[in-house]
Design a protein around this nucleic acid. Sequence first.
DNA 1: TTACGCTATTTTGTATACAAAGCTACGAGC
DNA 2: GCTCGTAGCTTTGTATACAAAATAGCGTAA
Lengths: 231, 231
Amino acid sequence: MQPAGDEEAAPKQRVQDEIRRDIIFGSLPPGTRVTETALATKYGISRVPVREALRALEAEGFVESKPYAGSTVSKIPVDDAEDLFFVREALESATARRAARRAAAQFDSGAPSSEWWNARKLLAGILDEGDAAVAQNRLDLLPELNIRFHLGIAELSGSSSLTALLRQIAGKIEWLYATDVDNRGKESWGEHRSIIAAIDAGNFADAEKLMANHVHQSKEGYLDRFSTEQS
Amino acid sequence: MQPAGDEEAAPKQRVQDEIRRDIIFGSLPPGTRVTETALATKYGISRVPVREALRALEAEGFVESKPYAGSTVSKIPVDDAEDLFFVREALESATARRAARRAAAQFDSGAPSSEWWNARKLLAGILDEGDAAVAQNRLDLLPELNIRFHLGIAELSGSSSLTALLRQIAGKIEWLYATDVDNRGKESWGEHRSIIAAIDAGNFADAEKLMANHVHQSKEGYLDRFSTEQS
DNA sequence: TTACGCTATTTTGTATACAAAGCTACGAGC
DNA sequence: GCTCGTAGCTTTGTATACAAAATAGCGTAA
């Protein structure tokens, strides 16, 4: 059994990830006009899956579309980023707290459920991957790993609702993270271990506080860096 | 010029609203399996716009889809509803606060911008409509009016990011609201005027607190009613 | 009787073809 | 010379046709 991710995804999913990646890493700058036919020919597929991918990216906030007028890559105004961090802080404090409570419950009730254990193992792998990336100075790998870590915490919380909400804004978080990874990437990644430790210990108060701080630091770092530029 | 909403929408948008409505008001109970062909024939259109509508509803959390396995109407577990209220409280406290700040800024700087003024007038109309609905005991009209009110506050805040996030969960909010409208609909609607008053007065602390309370009350009411049923 | 495997049907995913709407550019009229 | 209207083109929206995957049902064998 090979690890998930190697299996070739469906065309729709593939182009969706590809386009999002192009937006996050700058190949498609904000304001760019994207046409369905161009993307279809570029990726060698029909317009139908391209349309679906664009609609999904629209829901994630990466592109904006108007009927019969096409799609353009969204901009990230600085104050919008601030709002995003604000919501994220509330959301992720909650996931961390619940994850810690659930961890404690798992151990209290004898054997942990296989679902919980799988999520926990996945998270361990992500942490190791991230540490390796930091050690090799491959900061370009961190944005995706970062979002997988935070979604992993949400999974661990057991709340499908919180997970779904976080997933909604995950793309934008990765986008912001990618623009600031050179600045705070290493330090930010280092904070992840202590969050996990608090969760494993069932210390929900610490888990919540550490996560809130973690997000808050990211926010401050981002705003310090970009609040004066105003692209 | 007739009010927006009377103009016949595009088929995709139309079926999307129709399906959502059917889910919210119970014609399509949670767990129901929905097939594209059935919906297509039902609404007399092709499968393509149906697919897009389903994908959008999936993003809103109304249906869940797996590749080649179809879509089913989502369930609303009670604890997921609690999470939703939690996020909503954080989100809407922020929109109310910003709306109040912005209102004060509009008046301080001489003449209000036409954009702000339009949003404010829209909100006034919604409030009147809601009051009329309450007076005539047409509680079935309240869910939609309620969500339009809260989105209106978000518009008034001027933060497109917060508005977009709220819009993401607006459907589910309406869904929960519809299940509890008989219980708390009238009382809940009455609280809206005081929130607007605080915003108009530029009293951001009160606006934030009133909104937080408003959402909190809804949460308590919902949980009191449904926490024991566990459908 | 029950469990396993195969086939047939259903349903989703994708490709191509056509219709409708918007945008651009050119030309006529003021 | 400028403006408004119109024709052509580009692009999105929708319909139909075909391919791939999964599920369900039936039959066979243990």
